[in-house]
Design a protein around this nucleic acid. Structure first.
Lengths: 353, 353
DNA sequence: CGCCCCGTTGACTGTTGTCAAAGCAGGTGG
DNA sequence: CCACCTGCTTTGACAACAGTCAACGGGGCG
């Protein structure tokens, strides 16, 4: 895409001349012979740069700059004005009104082109500075560290080692941090009032947990308990919020994350409503299988307690057990002490439907 | 918070003088007597503006500008340089390197202050242009129109009137638009393979539907069917995406929306897993009641077909019916032809638990 | 007028939760 | 080292909740 430049100049020859130079420089050129029309074009077309003569009848260049500067949609467009050589004070006046650069007549072609190129480049630079990409989690974390650092709190992200069976956070508590699992295994679950638990997720290394209440500004709706000794990084609520609200890339990343989640939970809801325990067990096993499986699509063993698995399926442990026994009898699974082994993936998928 | 200004000037008297003027103008001032140290300070402190002399031993002002311009974290800081009066070509050179303004020695206090004020203001303006707030849906829609308009597709948002029992979109299809319900009533639902439907939402005026697949970049996971004649505004996929990815406010709004949704769906999942049909019916009725109720907390009638209600609860129509009959016998509800009337809100909440 | 859809009720069946008990492994304290 | 306890798994028996099939009445619509 080529840049569009609006040229406002009352002298037709001059205008023609400038336009042809710019077109040779592969810019798209819009022209106006007076200030009023120039403003109209600027508002409608939002050019990438405006080049405007100062000395014009009716509305002069300062007037144009002044008016465009008041409108938010045009105030950020780079504005370069044209003035007569001798006129020092005119240059000063233009700059004081917020122009970005100037050109003194007479100027040669290369001068014109390099001034315009310079200002467009500078503007692009500023624009892109507001949405630097974040490509990796390390970058996210270091950005988080940056935010933290700029407040002088600490320039090191806090990490914590949490042992098996300990809680990272509990339902009903107020969230203070976002957690990033560096290593280990964590179960998140919700509880009914009579103590039955529904597992909302088994989270391993590289996952974030506990972001929902931060985004929702509410207390935890689930608890997180450690299944295998875990190392978490903590990003404080404030740091997280300023990151999400100030960094476009992080915001869209979290939108993706939430959308993914929502998608999954909704389909789980449908399953929960109308599928039998048998189907749900098969489906949950398939999910665990694919999650744990390596690049060859093989998963040696699914290691999970009956209680947790029943919590994922959303059924009583006994019911789960009977279903697993059924699957074993049908030679779909092998139940060993070490864990559950899938023998017939096809058949399992068939049951899950 | 006051703005922080870095002044780089080799003449101690001059430096002292400038610093004291700026401090009187309520700026925070950082100083350096040479270019190298100035760069160090700039990188570390990220001042809001840099004022730098051109003529300096060792590293001159152009060198400072050049180096700072190459570092993304300092390239967007407004840079004003100081030069000798006579020197036209020096000014030009500085501007070509991407400086934002200049001051010619000698200058008086007010000149200094107004140049600095001007450039800081301009920079703030540009900065804030990248995250203008959106306060209302009208603004959102007009912003959407703006995006659309700038591409010259159309400067009018497309609206469509859809009659009862017609689909807005269907499960499995590819999303082309985001829909905003201007008036009417829409049901969104998912289906199991054997034709049972789970209602994911009843949406009225002012709600967006169909954003999830747009954000997820997948096909619809639910269908939307019109319950009462509806007027929708359509925002094309492209417009929506560029809005979400370019406008911080819209991104955070959708984060909130998604987080809300997720919160709700998760608690629904818990209910679905372990609550009886009786409890789920009560809970669904409570939700409908509060959604439909006016500011006094009264809701005259819940008007919804048995089939849809059973779809919300996630049960067979017959089961729902029996439960409603039970509630009627317990004087919790009144079932009329016009709709369902809640007689005993407290008791209903008690059942829902 | 007939057809179809909706709401309602009855009868029946099967899935699934609950209670109970026993086996087994791992950890703890004497 | 052994006894004991606790927590997890497995199996059995049983009840009940909820889905399915069927039938009927009523109202709206062609």
């Amino acid at each position: 895409m080529s840049y569009r430049i609006l040229v406002i100049e009352d002298n037709p020859d001059m205008l023609e001349n400038i336009a042809s130079i710019l077109e040779l420089g592969h810019y798209e050129v819009l022209t106006s012979e007076n200030g009023k029309r120039g403003i109209e074009i600027a508002l409608k077309e939002k050019p990438d740069l405006i080049l405007c003569d100062v000395m014009m009848p009716e509305l002069d260049g300062y007037g144009v700059l002044h008016i465009l500067g008041r409108n938010p949609s045009t105030s950020t467009i780079p504005f370069v004005f044209l003035t007569a050589m001798s006129d020092f004070s005119h240059i000063r006046e233009g700059m004081m009104l917020g122009a970005d650069d100037y050109l003194t007549k007479p100027f040669d072609d290369s001068e014109l082109l390099s001034v315009i190129e310079m200002r467009i480049k500078k503007h692009e630079q500023i624009k892109s500075a507001f949405d630097r990409d974040i490509h990796s989690i390390e970058e996210f974390l270091s950005r988080a560290r940056e935010v933290r650092g700029s407040r002088g709190i600490s320039d090191q992200l806090q990490s914590r080692v949490i042992k098996k069976k300990n809680f990272i956070f509990m339902e009903g508590h107020e969230p203070l941090d976002l957690y990033y699992i560096n290593s280990g295994l964590v179960k998140t679950y919700m509880m009914t009032e009579d103590g039955k638990e529904l597992v909302t997720g088994i989270h391993g290394a590289g996952e974030f947990i506990g972001y929902l209440p931060l985004l929702e500004n509410s207390s935890y709706n689930e608890s997180a308990i450690v299944l295998e000794d875990t190392v978490v990084y903590m990003i404080s609520k404030n740091d997280f919020n300023s990151l999400v609200y100030s960094n476009r890339m992080i915001a869209t990343q979290f939108i993706k994350l939430l959308a993914d989640n929502l998608f999954e939970v909704e389909s789980r809801l449908l399953e929960m409503a109308y599928q039998s325990v048998r189907q749900r067990v098969a489906s949950s096993l398939m999910k665990l299988f694919t999650k744990e499986s390596d690049e060859n699509g093989d998963c040696p063993l699914i290691r999970i307690s009956r209680k947790d698995l029943s919590g994922i399926v959303g059924t009583a442990t006994e019911s789960l057990n009977r279903t697993l026994a059924d699957f074993r009898d049908e030679h779909i699974l092998e139940l060993t002490e070490a864990g559950i082994k899938v023998l017939d993936k096809q058949k399992l998928m068939g049951v899950a439907h």
